[in-house]
């Protein structure tokens, strides 16, 4: 599904990613943990195609294609979804209108007919229920005046609507209370499929109590320095990141 080789990226003159290697197979859930400033969110942004970041070395294969060659909207149409850490507000653009456009552009890309109003509505209701999102929000402007929790749930709601192949969740857990966290995690778990992969970026272990990853990676200073099973997350929770940092330096 996704193969990242020796990825280097910088913003302005600052190198942030310094050789990331990561392979994610179809149906797997990978967690990426690491201290603040280690480059986790940059990795998500580079995969989604944010233009401020310049890739200086390495490559990324997505379903056998060169991902870095694709425009950001093309990546989305090919099934790459990013759940934003800070979802963006679009004043005056209703959720309804926004999602319909997004969904129909994807369907058009795949050579499918646009979804009928009825089918769209039905699907919207089902997906909103999945993350316990008030359907009333659909007639409001995108993220405009949404609470922090609503914004995050809205990201997972869109994930459900758009049915991506690769979902990258950038600190979806930050700012969520424990109930909201559980709701979001339940939503994600319901969306797990054999042909869909997740890359879950998080600072804290607690999300991984609910979304059980196949593999946990630790990112420090722009590289993945350690990978392991879900126990690795528990170790990190207990010991913090410093021991890994020290070990890495020692190596």
């Amino acid at each position: 599904m996704l193969q990242i080789n020796n990825l280097h990226a910088r913003i302005e003159e600052q190198n942030i990613l310094k050789g990331v290697d990561l392979t994610v197979s179809a149906g797997e859930v990978h967690a990426i943990m690491g201290p603040n400033g280690s480059g986790k969110s940059t990795l998500a942004s580079v995969l989604a195609g944010r233009e401020e970041f310049e890739v200086t070395d390495g490559n990324v294969l997505y379903q056998g294609q060169d991902l870095l060659e694709m425009e950001p909207d093309e990546r989305a149409l090919e099934g790459v979804f990013l759940a934003f850490q800070y979802p963006v507000e679009l004043p005056g653009v209703s959720m309804n209108n926004f999602l319909r456009q997004a969904l129909n552009q994807q369907r058009e890309y795949r050579g499918e007919e646009p979804l009928s109003a009825g089918a769209f509505l039905k699907r919207m209701k089902a997906c909103a229920a999945l993350v316990d999102l008030d359907p009333q929000l659909m007639s409001r402007a995108v993220n405009d005046g949404f609470s922090g929790g609503e914004k995050k749930r809205n990201e997972i709601f869109q994930l459900a609507m758009l049915e991506p192949r690769l979902a990258i969740m950038d600190e979806t857990d930050s700012g969520l209370d424990i109930d909201a966290l559980r709701t979001v995690a339940d939503g994600v778990n319901a969306l797990r499929r054999n042909d869909r992969s997740f890359v879950v970026i998080t600072h804290y272990q607690r999300l991984l109590d609910y979304i059980i990853p196949d593999t946990v990676h630790v990112m420090v200073d722009g590289r993945i320095v350690r990978s392991g099973g879900k126990e690795l997350a528990l170790d990190l929770e207990k010991k913090g990141y410093d021991w890994i940092r020290e070990e890495t330096v020692a190596v």
């Binding site: 989305a76 990013l82 963006v88 679009l90």
Partner: peptide
């Protein structure tokens, strides 16, 4: 805002119109 639209598969022209 533009990037948010792109990330949902909405192209540049459509995104500008929408916004």
């Amino acid at each position: 805002q533009m990037f948010y639209c792109f990330q949902r598969g909405i192209g540049e022209e459509a995104a500008i119109k929408l916004i």
